[in-house]
Every structure is written in C-alpha cells, then in structure tokens.
Amino acid sequence: MKVIAKRPESLTQQAFHYCPGCTHGIIHRLVAEVIDELGEGGPAVGIAPVGCSVLAYEYFNLDMIQASHGRAPAVATGVKRALPDCIVFTYQGDGDLAAIGLSEIVHAALRGENFTVIFVNNAIYGMTGGQIAPTTLPGQKTTTSPLGRDTVLSGNPIKVCELLATQEGPAYLSRVSVHSPAQVRRARKAIQKAFEVQRKKQGFSLVEILSTCPTNWGLDPLKSLEWLEKEMLPRYPLGEFRTPGGEENGSL
C-alpha cells in the first residue's frame, strides 16, 4: 500500500481553528504540499497578517511572521530583501489585501518583489463576523450590508488579478478556485507555478483563490461551494492573468 494523501511536513499537528467546511484548510494544505516539494531548496518564511488566517503561524511548520492588517507585502519585502534566497510567501484574505492593504500589494507588485502571495478571496470579512468586504458581490448580504451590497452606497467589488494585470511589475497572476476536486487540483498547480516563478527569481507572483465562508455566508459547507461556483465565478473568472512567458490563459 502506498500513501497517496497525508498531512504535509510543512504543517504542524495543530488542528485548524477554521469553521467546518471552510476551505482555508484545503488552501493551507495545498501551500504546505507545494513547499514540501521544494525540499532542500525551499527553506521558507511565511507571513500571515490579520484575518481568519492570522493564526497561520500555528499551522505552518516553518519560520513564520505575524504581521499587522494589510501590511504583509511590506513585511515580505523587508524579509525577502534581507534573505533573497529564501522562499517567502504571504497568506492574505480579501479584506486585508484588497481594502486596508491595497497600497502595499500594488506597490509590492509594481516593484516586482520576488515573493509569492496566496490571496484568499471569500467575498466577506470572516474573522470579525461577516462584514462587507471590498470583494463582496452586489446584492450580497453581510452584517454591514444587511439589505445586500448596494453599489451606489458601497461601491463595486474589486478584481485584484485584473487590476494588477494592467501593470508591468507582476510576473505571475492567477485566479483559481477550490469548489470541486478538479478545481482544487488546478489550484495546486497554480500555487506550484507561483512558487516556481519565485524560485527562478522571476518576480512577483500572486494566486487568488476563491474560497468559501459557510458561517458568514449563512450556508452549509456544500451549498457554499455551489454558491461560490454560481455567484462568484461569473464575477471573478478563473485563469492566468500574467505568466513569465506571456502565455496568459484567461479560461482555465
């Protein structure tokens, strides 16, 4: 018998605090598996700012830094400039990256900083209890948009990959999802590619991963996956928005 699925070495034994069915856990595992594959070449430092994944330093069996809200790309810049041969990644949520930390992510991308961003987009603020996020869909109900997101009042959802793809700095930009086994495998490939881009010192890489928040969406874990597929995919199309070779594939 051959073990084909087990806990990756780059994760500790600590059980995740995430809610049942929250896909953060899947994404943690994918990142850890990819770091495992880097082997000796992959001494890694992870940076987790404020958000549901603020406790990521408990889970990744790596040197870890907990950072302030939105600032992980600046912290990662400081780490990578001091340790250019070390694999560095940030793990950020959508409120963190696309609201309070928008300046830091854009400028890290513009500078082409050679680290990898794992950007988890679940269209809501999870940790603080389900408030409207910059990625919340029009009409989506949250605790601070109880009647649904009114774009006149709260603006429109931000498309991070599309935004960054208008600029010259980034080397790799990809949006994936984890709502089905096939999509999880694709997400894993995108994460692999992003870390490979970094290992080859090709520059800034970001993988946006559409993720669920069953608790704050008010849906069970399965219905959450369906909602992600039905509601989020049309607004956040999957695909590669930038590759080092230039062979973008907007329809993965």
Binding site: A5, K6, R7, Y18, G25, I26, V184, R185
Partner: peptide, 17 residues
C-alpha cells in the same frame, strides 16, 4: 483520494494498493 483532496482538516489519510 478525492475525500482527502476536499477535506479542509486533513482528517483522512489515503493509501492505495
């Protein structure tokens, strides 16, 4: 291995003959 692939909490270890 699909169960393990979709499990957010790494509850399942899968072996195959």
């Amino acid at each position: 291995g699909i169960c393990a692939l979709m499990c957010p909490d790494m509850v399942i270890q899968v072996e195959r003959g």
